[in-house]
Design a protein around this nucleic acid. Structure first.
Lengths: 246, 246
DNA sequence: ATCTTGCTTTGATCCTGATCAAAGTAACTG
DNA sequence: CAGTTACTTTGATCAGGATCAAAGCAAGAT
């Protein structure tokens, strides 16, 4: 991962754009907040929290990637969300974590102790408004993913996942995709399978198939190059005229 | 459907528990709101709104059932939500509907014109807070459903859907399930298939199979009787000790 | 009463993706 | 360097659910 180092006084990715919470906005006034705001780091593979555990903080992702997932008793696992920088973790007003959160890469979280954060929400309505908008976005994303899980073929699922990562990666680096996109695949084949409701073997086979027909190119296992985004889009099964591809 | 008639001055199901919005709380003060609050009815099968259409209201379901769904160009359809009485429809701050909304049964909505509703949210923070909690609940439900779509077998999917309907039905009628539950199945086999990411034939076969082993009993096609809820739970694949079954 | 129409059930067959198994690859370790 | 570990690829086979097809059923229309 391209972990650019960060200064805890100015993480720059906090989604709650309010001076009392995001130190980027008013870095000088924040000393008194140190007892409610702090940073945590996790190594790749470490759990952040398990479903059902009491959760005494909310947080936003500063660097790295985490997954949100659910596991059945017999071991079947379904990932229900991918947390990238600027994504928010936590349920104001809820006691327990609803899902497992695991660091996929090295991870830095900007955490807020829950009680003071909720007090702040009470006294600062704009934070709640911002959080509502973010939650509505997440809900739309989750529902879009339901179409992928319920109705798409393995091939279309892989293409859809690659599009999502390519899109978010391009947005993060503010790079417009002209004649090709290149990015680092942050997930193992197994993690992709858990996201897509497939087995890791099927993921591997479909990636090989996409490589064989030239839709994607791989250097090593993880570096992906997409020469022509339209060809990848046409593999997703999505409406090509959708407009909001990038 | 058991449509109990309702009085437009006191719908009793509005999820926004605030006197300025929900006439149940302070019915006498509400005359001035008639220009922002109104009721709409739809017949079974009628569309409420299509994905992408401009949406000039938000609403809550008073009676009946609606579905939220997505369709691909080739006709594959995935239902992404089931809207039952007291559920909320709409995106404050968004211009266009993200998904198709269709009335499954006869439907009554309690609508608020969007602009005035947003103004009211601005001046009344508790509405935003309530909406945030509801949206977080919906997000959790959507994510739980992702496990169903991605990892469960056809049999488990059917059992999971029956459990959801039984649970919501019991909650609505405030009836505790002692030695059995009985309810009306509001969806066609095809609608169930669209919800579960299956074909209607598979839905029919699995329902027949559950009937044959005695987990469910049918009178006609739609009236379902479940003699022993634990047996149905054990078909869902879910953790039996979960505690929050009912 | 007969004919529609819409929904459901059941049967036969096929195919996508799961499962089981083994070999390949790359990064680390001692 | 060989050996270990973690991940990935590829192969062979299987099975769950999709697809194609036809018949059953109930309510309403003529």
């Amino acid at each position: 991962m391209n972990d650019t180092s960060f200064n805890p006084r100015d993480c720059g990715t906090c989604p709650i754009r309010h001076r009392a919470v995001c130190s980027r906005c008013e870095p000088d006034e924040l000393d008194h907040l140190d007892d409610i705001k702090y940073y945590r780091t996790y190594e790749a593979g470490q759990p952040v929290i398990w479903a059902g555990d009491p959760m005494e903080f909310v947080a936003s992702v500063v660097t790295g990637i985490a997954t949100l997932s659910q596991t059945m008793e017999d071991g079947r696992t379904q990932m229900v969300g991918l947390l990238l920088p600027s994504d928010f973790i936590g349920r104001p007003g809820r006691e327990h974590a609803p899902f497992d959160v695991v660091a996929v890469t090295d991870l830095t979280l900007c955490c807020f102790r829950k009680k003071p954060f909720e007090d702040l929400m009470g006294s600062t309505p704009s934070i709640g408004g911002r959080l509502l908008q973010m939650t509505l976005d997440e809900l739309d994303s989750a529902r879009e993913w339901m179409l992928v899980l319920g109705r798409k073929t393995a091939r279309e699922k892989i293409a859809s996942l690659l599009m999502i990562i390519a899109r978010r990666d391009a947005a993060l680096h503010k790079r417009l995709p002209k004649d090709g996109v290149e990015f680092d695949l942050p997930l193992t084949r197994e993690a992709m399978a858990d996201y897509l409701g497939l087995t890791l073997e099927t993921v591997s086979r479909q990636i090989s198939a996409l490589k064989k027909v030239g839709v994607i190119q791989l250097q090593g296992k993880r570096q992906v190059h997409i020469p022509d985004l339209q060809r990848l889009v046409s593999e997703t099964g999505d409406d090509m005229d959708g407009g909001h591809i990038f």
